[in-house]
Computed example of a mutant assay.
Amino acid sequence: MQRFEDWPTRLAEFVEARRERAFSWGESDCALFVCDGIESMTGTDPGERWRGLYSTEKGARRVLRDNGGVSGLATLILGPPVVPASAGRGDVVLIDTPEGNALALCIGDRIAAQGVGGIEFHPIAAAKAAWKV
């Protein structure tokens, strides 16, 4: 995937547009949030094959189980993980949440993650793994 020349602007606009969008399985969950962010920066939707396959937590767990979990899904889309310290703006990171592991986007010195009521921001130090976009 190649990023558009203006990908930083596109990423900022994407995060701002999603700021108050509530969590929804199969529409606005952590994996599809990241896929939508990648699409905004590259024009390629890495989540296309999973869209419409689930709309519940049970369905999401099945998709994750069939694809190696949250980390496996990110690796399938983006290749092998890199050390979290090498994550840069626009890259994908893995964070721990009270509900378990979640994918999120590095937006510089912070991480943007899909939360229950909209985007939640975390310090970059919260990244447990990372993948280059």
Results as ranks from 00 to 15, higher is better:
Leu11Met: 10
Leu53Asp: 06
Asp109Ser: 13
Ala31His: 04
Phe33Ala: 01
Leu73Val: 05
Glu48Lys: 11
Leu11Ser: 10
Arg61Cys: 05
Arg49Cys: 03
Gly69Arg: 09
Lys58Trp: 04
Arg110Glu: 14
Ala60Asp: 03
Trp131Gly: 01
Gln2Ser: 12
Lys132Val: 03
Ala104Cys: 09
Phe23Lys: 08
Lys132Met: 11
Gly59Ile: 01
Gly88Asp: 14
Ala31Thr: 01
Leu53Thr: 14
Gly69Ile: 06
Ser24Ala: 15
Gly68Asn: 12
Gly68Met: 08
Ala126Ile: 02
Ala17Trp: 11
Arg10Trp: 10
Gly118Gln: 06
Ser86Glu: 13
Ala12Met: 06
Ser86Ile: 08
Trp131Val: 01
Pro123Asp: 12
Trp7Gly: 02
Ser71Lys: 11
Gly69Glu: 11
Arg89Tyr: 11
Gly118Val: 04
Gly47Lys: 12
Asn67Tyr: 10
Leu103Asp: 02
Leu76Gly: 12
Leu53Val: 02
Ile119Pro: 07
Thr97Glu: 10
Val116Ser: 13
Arg65Gly: 14
Lys132Asp: 00
Trp50Leu: 03
Ala87Phe: 13
Gly69Asn: 09
Leu73Gln: 11
Gly108Asn: 10
Ser86Arg: 09
Pro80Ser: 12
Trp7Phe: 11
Leu105Lys: 06
Ala113Glu: 03
Ile111Val: 14
Arg18Trp: 15
Glu99Val: 00
Gly100Ser: 00
Ala22Ile: 05
Leu78Asn: 03
Lys128Cys: 06
Pro8Cys: 00
Arg19Lys: 14
Arg18Ser: 12
Val83Leu: 12
Trp131Cys: 05
Gly79Gln: 07
Asp36Met: 05
Asn67Leu: 09
Thr44Glu: 13
Leu94Ser: 14
Ser55Phe: 02
Ile95Leu: 12
Trp50Lys: 00
Ala85Ser: 15
Glu5Phe: 08
Gly69Ser: 07
Val83Gly: 08
Glu20Leu: 05
Asn101Leu: 10
Gln114Gly: 01
Glu16Met: 11
Val63Ser: 07
Pro84Ser: 14
Gly100Pro: 01
Leu103Gln: 03
Phe14Ala: 03
Pro46His: 07
Trp50Val: 04
